[in-house]
Simulated assay, not measured.
Amino acid sequence: MRAAIQPGEDETAKAQRRRLTRRLVAVQEEQRLRLSRELHDDLGQMLASVALELHSIRADSAELDARLARAAQLVDQLSTRVHDAAWSLRPADLDRLGLRASVEDLASMLCAQLGIPCDVDLEALSRPLEPEVALTLYRIAQEALTNIGKHARPSRVSVTAHIWDKRLRLTVEDNGDGFDGDVAPGSRHLGLAGMKERLALIGGELTVETAKGKGTAIYADVPLPD
């Protein structure tokens, strides 16, 4: 005989799963922070020391000087990559400067790399937010802008935040290639799924508007406390 399902059991199970998932996300972010610090503080400093030594060495021949210069250049490039990797894992600015400055940096870096204009209005992100909410919105902006850089080929990008009806909305838009939401899922779709899951954990919601050749708009809405 099948056991009767008591009212509320489904909701209780869902709540337990949400708590477990949030804890897993928190653990993941703690690991990201630890790895970021190790990359930046330990490996980054070691590479900086090696680069300094290489730049100061002068050999007895032009050939060796050229090889040392090349080695120093490679170490400099590696240092830059280590810094970028540490920053993407857990940007120091998020803890030091806050969400607004961190998202502005993300948008500025992308638009500088693409050589395109960037419209930024993130005053709404200056208000105090729970650390979990701030981190989630940062990750949404990071994933959305990464997708733009990889896939969109836009001539303009817009990143804005506004408060309406007791909700905070972060919007990332581009006028690039867009995509067909009906096609088989690819890497971008997996990224969107991850954004939706992250937002759901804090009671938020993700909306995507896109079409082939029509650009893409991503709206991340999170509730604000009364």
Score class of each variant (00 low, 15 high):
31 Q>D: 12
30 E>K: 12
33 L>N: 11
22 R>F: 00
42 D>L: 06
22 R>G: 02
38 E>V: 13
11 E>Q: 07
25 V>G: 01
40 H>V: 01
40 H>A: 01
31 Q>M: 11
26 A>S: 08
26 A>G: 05
29 E>D: 14
21 T>L: 11
34 R>I: 14
20 L>V: 06
37 R>W: 10
42 D>H: 08
27 V>Y: 02
13 A>V: 10
40 H>R: 04
10 D>G: 00
38 E>Q: 15
15 A>W: 07
15 A>I: 10
40 H>W: 01
37 R>D: 08
27 V>K: 01
39 L>S: 10
22 R>W: 01
20 L>N: 01
19 R>T: 14
41 D>T: 01
23 R>E: 08
32 R>N: 15
28 Q>E: 14
32 R>I: 07
24 L>A: 02
22 R>M: 03
30 E>F: 07
21 T>H: 03
17 R>G: 02
41 D>W: 00
39 L>I: 12
23 R>A: 06
23 R>D: 07
42 D>C: 12
26 A>E: 12
34 R>C: 14
39 L>V: 13
12 T>I: 06
9 E>V: 11
23 R>H: 05
24 L>F: 00
21 T>E: 07
12 T>S: 07
35 L>W: 15
9 E>L: 12
42 D>E: 10
41 D>K: 00
34 R>F: 15
38 E>Y: 13
21 T>M: 06
27 V>T: 08
31 Q>L: 14
23 R>V: 02
33 L>G: 09
31 Q>Y: 09
11 E>M: 05
15 A>Q: 12
32 R>Q: 14
32 R>S: 15
41 D>V: 02
34 R>Q: 09
15 A>K: 08
34 R>W: 12
16 Q>D: 11
20 L>D: 04
33 L>T: 13
27 V>F: 03
16 Q>E: 12
21 T>D: 05
9 E>Y: 08
12 T>Q: 06
28 Q>A: 15
21 T>G: 01
28 Q>M: 09
38 E>S: 11
13 A>W: 09
16 Q>A: 08
